[in-house]
């Protein structure tokens, strides 16, 4: 398309399909949580519609891009869109990191009697204000909602699986950078090789993460283990979800590389996904440092 023209797309059905899909998914989820029988089927249906929409919509965009309907300006709009979308993701994680820091630095010490809360320990007999075991350690006590508190018998170690996973993700950052380098010098075979390596490392990470969850769960660390269990699972869980998304996107990119969609100068989709992957990687580093170590 001419550099001097504006790109204005035709009308499209994808957004309304997406809205319907997501709404069915969420309504199904809410009903499923409330024990309604059709809840999970609605979730599956909504999820299927949403995935259909994503592939249809993005597929159309890819086709238009390959057919040369876009120009530099459209490319820049996509860049702005992707960048600020990722920034909104950063803020989403910030909320959970904020909760982690607040609990760690303020609410747990306060519950333990720090500052002017000296009476709290007497009022809260049996409450353990230690970090990984913040809850009532008296057996049989429950959360306000009535859920039994699960007290972990073993503690989450920073070495071992988490350290291994950190290495895996960091290496995936290296291989992805190498793939990027290869793409910038138009060496398609190397790009494919490094991308496959990145995807493999990502999948390995996910596998070990599942193992790690299995160990933690067996040791009694659950979502219901008080604030440590809550922040641990929510942060690592959302992170794992993003790694999964990243692996899917990298796979799509791999296929597009094979089809020869990118050139050394024109590979926004690759760059967007690459930055996303680096972002997910950095989130993990933050997790590793703040959840497991410091």
């Amino acid at each position: 398309m001419n550099e001097k023209e504006y790109y204005i797309p035709d009308g499209t059905y994808w957004p309304i399909i997406g809205s319907i899909g997501i709404s069915i998914l969420l309504i199904g989820f809410a009903n499923q949580m409330h024990g309604v029988s059709w809840g999970s089927s609605a979730m599956v249906l909504g999820f299927a519609i949403t995935v259909f929409m994503l592939f249809g919509w993005l597929g159309q965009v890819v086709n238009e891009s390959v057919n040369g309907q876009y120009n530099q300006q459209v490319d820049r709009s996509f860049r702005w869109g992707m960048s600020w979308f990722i920034f909104s993701e950063v803020m989403f994680f910030a909320a959970f990191f904020g909760a982690l820091f607040y609990a760690r630095m303020l609410s747990v010490p306060w519950l333990g009697g720090a500052d002017n809360n000296i009476f709290t320990p007497d009022l809260w007999n049996g409450f353990s204000a230690t970090w990984q075991q913040v809850a009532f350690t008296t057996p049989g006590t429950t959360l306000q909602s009535g859920t039994a508190i699960s007290i972990p018998t073993k503690l989450v170690e920073a070495t071992g699986l988490p350290a291994l996973n950190t290495i895996l993700l960091l290496l995936s950052g290296v291989t992805l950078t190498l793939a990027h380098h290869a793409l910038r010098s138009d060496n398609r075979n190397q790009v494919i090789g490094w991308l496959v390596a990145t995807i493999t490392l990502g999948v390995a990470f996910l596998g070990f993460q599942v193992m790690e969850y299995g160990h933690a769960y067996a040791d009694g660390l659950k979502l219901t283990s008080g604030i440590y269990g809550s922040t641990f699972y929510m942060l690592t869980g959302f992170h794992g979800f993003h790694v999964t998304l990243g692996v899917i996107m990298l796979t799509v990119i791999l296929f597009r590389v094979q089809k020869g969609h990118f050139s050394a100068n024109n590979h926004f989709a690759f760059e967007g996904v690459a930055w996303y992957w680096h972002f997910v990687d950095v989130v993990w580093l933050g997790l590793f440092v703040f959840v497991y170590w410091v």
Binding site: F96, S107, I227
Partner: peptide
């Protein structure tokens, strides 16, 4: 700001349905 709101309601959701303790002092939250 909006993603932070999404985070807040997500924590509400898990506190309500999955037994997390973000906003429950009996579990160390606040």
């Amino acid at each position: 700001a909006m993603p932070v709101l999404a985070g807040a309601v997500t924590m509400m959701l898990t506190d309500r349905n999955f037994g997390t303790a973000f906003f429950d002092a009996t579990g160390g939250g606040d």
